[in-house]
Nucleic acid binder design. Structure first.
Lengths: 185, 185
DNA sequence: TCACGACGGAACGGTTGCGTTTCGACGTAC
DNA sequence: GTACGTCGAAACGCAACCGTTCCGTCGTGA
């Protein structure tokens, strides 16, 4: 029976290494070193670096996303931005997510895992928000969920992950209002 | 006197390697191999992988960005999106840019180089577009160029680089209209 | 014509990680 | 109390790349 505390230590170490050096530079030896375990313990559980990361990403997927239902489009969008901003401010997440996205272009398995772990979940939430807004008459029939996601999350991701500039006070409120205006255009 | 054709071959090889394996995995040996030159030729010109990449990024910066002046906010935004979409559709650019952005978080020199090569230029263009729009009365006084850039480029970057999904016909027109509506909100 | 310097290629010793194997110590289930 | 399996640690041979050095070739400028 594999010891669970060792497994947990390895999982935590992978996140650490992923954030510190990125997927490309990450090594099994480095993971074992950081976790304070032997390489044997790692290879007994996963057969490769790729399998290890895929397992981790899938685990994140299982957590699911809360779908906002505030009763107004602005409220839903604002709530979405809050959750996204909170996630993207985590130093680990803001380092690991773009790193894996880049790597996904080279490893279809990673692309698939990220798609079902993150993008599909986001798409579902966006679709629900759009559906509710259409039902309330805030958006016209046939509004597109993909487009909505682009308009809502895009500016925030750009600001927090690409430009990496501080957001002024009230910026999320502003972004939410801007996104609602864009959606209705 | 260093031979210029060799220098060019190395530069091209760096772009190739950067797109193929990423900055982290890129090696001087690999660059020389791809360029069909000896390692000596590389080390004679640059002292490290980092210096090589910084030099390349700076060279890109020197090219500059065309500032649109179509006479309307929508026109300017649409032109900006066209240029950005064209650049981000290049397979090499869409692979290299996010890769270097991730690496920038670990190497301040790369962050600085990218900032002056890409972000500063974009900021300048956005500032000009906003200034013109304010002068025409299309935007209120004190409109923020950073916010404008987030709203214009963010959704496109998200779609093309993060989600990597095809854009439906006329999507750039739609994005431009949406961005204008967002800006005026 | 000749000397100089950059060229590609090969080798250097050193480091790092690969994936595997072996080892003795420990813990737990039976 | 014994037998089994996981544990950390260490070493294995192998491969890649580091940055440097030396080589013989070739093209060019004086």
């Amino acid at each position: 029976m594999l010891r669970e505390d060792v497994t947990d230590a390895i999982r935590a170490a992978v996140f650490g290494e992923l954030a510190a050096v990125g997927y490309a530079r990450m090594s099994i030896e480095g993971i074992a070193r950081r976790a304070g375990v032997g390489k044997t313990a790692v290879y007994r559980r996963w057969k490769s670096k790729l399998a290890l990361v895929l397992d981790l990403v899938s685990a994140v997927a299982a957590e699911g996303l809360p779908a906002p239902a505030t009763g107004s489009l602005y409220g839903d969008v604002r709530a979405l931005l809050e959750v996204a901003a909170h996630a993207l401010r985590h130093p680990v997440a803001s380092q690991v997510v773009p790193d894996l996205l880049v790597e996904a272009a080279r490893h279809p398995e990673i692309a698939d895992a990220i798609k079902s772990a993150l993008l599909d979940g986001q798409h579902g939430v966006a679709a629900a928000v759009v559906r509710d807004a259409v039902a309330r008459g805030e958006l016209p029939e046939g509004a597109d969920a993909d487009r909505a996601l682009d308009l809502i999350v895009g500016p925030l991701y750009w600001r927090l992950v690409v430009v990496r500039t501080a957001m002024p006070a009230g910026y999320l409120d502003d972004l939410a209002a801007s996104a609602v205006a864009a959606l209705k255009a």
